[in-house]
Design a binder for these strands. Structure first.
Length: 294
DNA sequence: CGAGTTTGACCAGCGC
DNA sequence: GCGCTGGTCAAACTCG
């Protein structure tokens, strides 16, 4: 894919690529689960960016974070993140039809005319229009834990080895039967301490609650889930996110914090609700520590 | 026993 | 057209 010359919306600062089969806008963020801070976030197309990150080590010695930040800067999106999530079409148009897994096997078999494969228990794939992917939203999170709590329940449905990466990629689907949201979790090949979580789609239900602590990217993810745009179908709760000290044993432990992370003022800042933060400072004020914005 | 995970196979898209 | 790769399926398995 040629992602060198992407059209960036001059108004929203978001990027979208002109493809009939893709409609993924997204925020791309770097967070640190150890101190509950978002290190950086910006709008970007997720897919090529992740590919670039994973395949980039030969091009630069910079850390993954630096690569990402640089991309954000180049795209001129950092200052426009406040518009990003709200400008998303939220894939509403494709939401209903983008349900390849919702079709029954029998229905697929009937439509494709293919008999079930005997050796695989009748697995039949739909042949038809190109798969339309939903809006995506990815985070890079410094964590030793791959699967981070985000308030929703997920069922793993696959795992694949990824090219150019020693770490497998895991595929999760929301356990809510009516919810089509998926997420992929993988470790950065360039920085094994970084977990890349990519969400696809929007939840059509509330969270199952916020057990224990929430990892750092949860706040940004919640923001993504609960934009103020009119396209939002549901009103998601805006919980008070717990302090790091509330984190349970299964969460990332705030152990050795890098010097960079130690400088993050997030722990001293009061945990304000989203609503307050959004009113005051917009998206950046909401999720990015002030020091990162300077 | 139900829910969730593992894992090998299948399929579609894409590049060469 | 072919091979590679990512994404998904679903049977088997594990766990609580």
């Amino acid at each position: 894919m040629d992602d060198d010359e992407k059209p960036i919306d001059p108004v929203t600062g978001t990027y979208s690529h002109d493809s009939s089969s893709w409609n993924d806008y997204g925020l791309f963020g770097i967070s640190d689960s150890r101190d509950n801070s978002i290190l950086s976030e910006f709008g970007w197309n997720i897919e090529p960016e992740l590919n670039r990150i994973d395949s980039a080590p030969k091009e630069t010695d910079a850390s993954t974070s630096e690569i990402v930040v640089d991309q954000a800067t180049k795209a001129g999106l950092v200052e426009n993140t406040g518009d990003v999530s709200m400008s998303n079409p939220v894939a509403s148009s494709s939401e209903s039809e983008d349900r390849p897994e919702s079709s029954t096997v029998s229905g697929e078999a009937a439509s494709s005319g293919k008999p079930p494969t005997p050796g695989t228990g009748g697995k039949v794939k739909k042949k038809g229009p190109k798969r339309i992917r939903q809006q995506r939203f990815a985070f890079m999170t410094k964590s030793e834990i791959d699967h981070l709590e985000d308030g929703y329940r997920w069922r793993k449905y696959g795992q694949k080895a990824v090219k150019n990466s020693p770490f497998p990629r895991s595929y999760y689907r929301c356990t809510n039967s009516k919810c089509t949201v998926k997420k992929r979790v993988e470790r950065s090949s360039t920085d094994p301490t970084t977990v890349i979580t990519t969400y696809e789609g929007q939840h059509c239900h509330h969270t199952v609650g916020f057990p224990r602590g929430l990892i750092s990217h949860e706040s940004a993810y919640a923001r993504y889930l609960a934009p103020s745009s009119t396209s939002q179908q549901f009103s998601y709760p805006r919980p008070q996110f717990p302090q790091v000290g509330d984190l349970g044993p299964s969460q990332s432990q705030p152990q050795v914090i890098s010097s960079e992370a130690e400088n993050q003022p997030s722990r001293e800042q009061p945990q304000t609700s989203f609503q307050d933060a959004r009113v005051d400072q917009g998206l950046l004020g909401d999720i990015v520590p002030s020091i990162m914005r300077n």
